[in-house]
Design a protein around this nucleic acid. Structure first.
Lengths: 216, 216
DNA sequence: CGGGAATTGGACCGATCAGTCCACTGCTGC
DNA sequence: GCAGCAGTGGACTGATCGGTCCAATTCCCG
C-alpha cells in the first residue's frame, strides 16, 4: 500500500538507463522545486531546461510530454512530503505524538516562510480539474498520508487510549484536511498562525474521543 | 471592515459608465466562472471574449490587463462565497447554528459535485506566489469570512455558551482552515466526505469550549 | 576496438496568448 | 442636429510555449 511512485504505468518504461537515471532524477528534482515555487503553469519546460543545464531533447527523451513530467513530480513530492514527517508520522500513537507531529508540520513551514504551501495541495489545486491522471495520483498520495495518520489513531484505539466509538479513518481525514487548509491559509497569510489554529482545533476534536481524563 | 471589493485603487476608475457597467459586469461574471472551472492560467482572454460575445478592445477598455480582471474576479468571488452562506453566516451564535452552517457548506458542494472547490481557495493556490496584489485581496477576502465566523463565536461567548477562555478569533481561523482543507480534498476526491470529516472534527474542537454540558 | 543503443545538443515549427492599434458606431447633452 | 466621447469590432504583433526532428556524441558490451 506504500508503493509505486515514479511515473506509473502510463507506458512501459523505456526499459533501460545508466547515468540517464541521474539526469532524469535531476530533471524531476528541478521541476518539482520550480513547480512548487511558481506553480505548474508558471513553469515552462525551458525553465526546467535552464535549471538543469539539459537540452530540450533530453526532456522529451525521459518524458513523453509535460504531463508525464508532472506525473513524476507528483510522485516525488508525495515521497518528499512523507519523508519530511517521517519520524513523527511513524511513531504516532498517542495524543502527545500527534502534538509532536503538529509541531513538526508547523516548524517546517515556519522555516520555509510558508512559501509554496504544501507541495501536494499546491499541485492538487492546479491540476485536479484539468488532468484526470494527476488527480488520481494525488488521491493516492493523500491516501498514503491519511493512512499514516490512521495507523497511529488505530494504535491509540487498540491501546484503549482512544474511544472505541471513534472512527480513525474519519479522524485521519479530518486531520489531513485541517493540515491542508491551514497550509493554504498560512501560505496566503505568510504566517504559520492559521496552520497552528487549524491543527490545534482538529487536535482538540480528536482529544474529545480520548478515554483517559481529557488532559486538554 | 467589510468594505472595498471591486478593483480597489489600482488606478482611479475611468470615471463614468452607462450600459458599459453591464458589459463590465458580464465580463467579470464570465471570467469568474471560467477561472473557477479551469483556473486562472487555464482561462485565456479569448475564452472570456468568446463566452461574453465581446471584443478584445472591450476587455482592455474596462481592465488595464489580465491582472486587473483577476482582481475584479477575486472581489466578485468574495462576495459570491459570502452570499451563498448568507443566512447561516449572519445567524451564527450557537453550536446548532454552526452545524447548520456546516450543513449548508456541505450541501452547496454536494450540489456542484465538488467541481472547482472553493472559488477563493482555488484562486489563492494559483495566485498567492505570483501576484502580490491578488494575495492582499485574498487575505482581505478570507478575513471577511473569518470575521463572520468570529462574530458568531463572540456572540456565543457573550451569551455564556462558549467558555471565556476560548479565543473566538483563533477558533474562527481554525474553522475557516478546516473548510478550506475539506473543500480542497473534496475537490480532489470528488466527494463531500473529506469536507464533512474536516468540518465535523473542527466543530468537535469548538464544542470542547462549550460551557453547558457537552452535548457532543 | 568496433558497433549499436543510449544520451545529448539545439534549431525549428505551429499554436496560443497577452496586449496594441485604429477605425467605426451609437448614444447624449447642448 | 452636431460635436464628442463612451463603447465596440477586429486585425495585427511580438513573445512564449509545448512539441518535433535530426544530427552529433558518449557509453556500454562483446
Amino acid at each position: 500500500m506504500i508503493v509505486m511512485h515514479t511515473t506509473g504505468d502510463r507506458a512501459a518504461e523505456p526499459v533501460l538507463t545508466a547515468r540517464g537515471r541521474a539526469t532524469r532524477e535531476r530533471i524531476v528534482a528541478a521541476a518539482a522545486e520550480l513547480m512548487h515555487e511558481r506553480g505548474v503553469a508558471g513553469t515552462s519546460l525551458d525553465d526546467v531546461r535552464a535549471a538543469t543545464g539539459t537540452s530540450k531533447s533530453q526532456l522529451y527523451h525521459y518524458f513523453a510530454d509535460k504531463a508525464a513530467l508532472v506525473g513524476a513530480v507528483i510522485g516525488r513530492q508525495v515521497g518528499q512530503v512523507l519523508q519530511v514527517q517521517q519520524p513523527e508520522l511513524d511513531d504516532l500513537g498517542s495524543l502527545a505524538a500527534l502534538r509532536r507531529w503538529r509541531d513538526r508540520v508547523v516548524e517546517v513551514n515556519r522555516h520555509t516562510g510558508c512559501v509554496g504551501g504544501c507541495p501536494l495541495g499546491r499541485l492538487a489545486g492546479e491540476l485536479v480539474e484539468s488532468d484526470p491522471s494527476a488527480r488520481a495520483d494525488l488521491v493516492a498520495g493523500f491516501g498514503e498520508w491519511r493512512e499514516h495518520l490512521a495507523v497511529g489513531l488505530r494504535a491509540m484505539q487498540a491501546r484503549g487510549e482512544l474511544a472505541g466509538g471513534a472512527d480513525p479513518e474519519e479522524l485521519a481525514l479530518g486531520l489531513l484536511a485541517a493540515a491542508q487548509g491551514g497550509l493554504l491559509l498560512a501560505q496566503t497569510h505568510r504566517s504559520v498562525e492559521p496552520l497552528e489554529a487549524a491543527l490545534d482545533l482538529a487536535l482538540a476534536g480528536v482529544a474529545v474521543h480520548l478515554v483517559v481524563s481529557g488532559d486538554r
